[in-house]
Nucleic acid binder design. Structure first.
Lengths: 222, 222
DNA sequence: ATATATTTTTAGACTAATCTAAAAATTGAA
DNA sequence: TTCAATTTTTAGATTAGTCTAAAAATATAT
């Protein structure tokens, strides 16, 4: 299956906007992510659907097919390996490499990807702490601990919840916390066990005790 | 000046088809090189001309403008640096890297190119023996001539090929000829323009006309 | 020098990806 | 539940790059 750069970018966007809930990803969400228009997204989704890369029902959003997911994960593997290369070998800072990796991730060669992987020493996580899929598409496991066990300065990624009640999940949603959200701990507030954290956009947010004691996170390995 | 991948490929083709004679490069030659049709070439030349990247007179062929040459040389610099990376760091053979470098040469980032350059130790020549332009676009010197211009007793080093088709490179590989191979000319075989040479291990080898007329070598000055 | 062959350009059409504007479907609030 | 707001899709146009077929220009051979 031949895929264009653009198709790969759509598949990647759908992958990262997908949730375990099983709901389709909405046209507008994809448009926003890719900085394009909803009408363009509809067109592209139709093309991807004809190629069997996504399952699509009009007005109901879109999901990746098995084949579409494979393509997306292969692109993500390349993206994260190139980011590792740029930081570990060329000395870029981890916050400078995203746009470059967006270009490099479309280079077509399994052989190159695999050689790059071993040149880098088969890293399991990229410079942002995100897991690098292996050749067969499987993601490495990460050690997860409760948010409360971290302290000021620690950088973490939300990777799960120990209480999966609907109410808790909805509350997380309201707090704009989801899987993959990156946070930096600013401080513990001792008197009520809440925690001040900083988001990627620089804004600070206060997380109540209920969240701090239930949220599973993974430490970012820089 | 923003250039597309396709424009860059045209500029590169025009660069490599240009001769010192100062004549314009013909539409058909470009079409053949890029495996496209003459009509497509005419269209693209017109676009490049409007952008000021080439000088073009209908029916008289095309020449690179100063700005077009700069773009072409920057792409060539990237191509050759990536080839060096693939061979020196990832362990590819020098006859396997061309198609990959054709993709990598379009990655847009002067910063990346310069960091790659220093990561590789600022190489002057790529794995095919071709000179790598420096950041400012200047080529390193090295006097190379075709093997056929040498005579009995001359000692030379293989430093490049004037035909870098995959078939030719693979043939050289089969003949155990690679960059840096040292040879001594034994004799010209006049009737079919082949050449008898002696290798460092003392063995003699007959090189067919196709090799003798395409292999670039540098004289060994002892 | 003139007819023929070759090269180059033009005309018109196609595809991928995009856009704007408007229509259709869905969602949500009174 | 019904009507307004929002989301999504459709219709039609645009751009880059390509093609085929035919016309125009140039080169070549007798």
């Amino acid at each position: 299956m031949e895929t264009t750069y653009t198709e790969e970018n759509y598949l990647k966007a759908i992958w990262s906007l997908s949730t375990k809930s099983g709901k389709g990803v909405s046209t507008n969400k994809i448009a926003e992510r890719l900085e394009t228009k909803a009408s363009s997204v509809t067109d592209m989704i139709r093309r991807l659907s004809e190629k069997g890369l996504v399952d699509y029902i009009k007005y109901q959003g879109v999901k990746l097919s098995d084949e579409g997911r494979e393509v997306a994960v292969r692109v993500i593997r390349k993206h994260r390996l190139w980011e590792s290369f740029l930081v570990d070998k060329l000395g870029f800072n981890w916050d400078e490499v995203h746009d470059l990796a967006e270009q490099l991730e479309h280079i077509r060669s399994t052989e190159l990807t695999d050689r790059l992987d071993s040149f880098l020493g088969n890293p399991k996580f990229d410079p942002h702490g995100d897991p690098i899929p292996s050749r067969d598409g499987s993601f490495p496991e990460r050690e997860r601990r409760l948010l409360q066990s971290f302290g000021p300065g620690d950088e973490i990624i939300v990777t799960g919840v120990s209480d999966s009640s609907v109410a808790f999940l909805q509350f997380l949603n309201r707090m704009k916390l989801e899987l993959g959200t990156h946070l930096r701990v600013v401080e513990h507030i001792d008197f009520d066990q809440s925690m001040l954290v900083q988001r990627e956009d620089g804004n600070e947010q206060l997380l109540p005790q209920g969240v701090v004691s239930q949220l599973l996170v993974t430490e970012k390995l820089n």
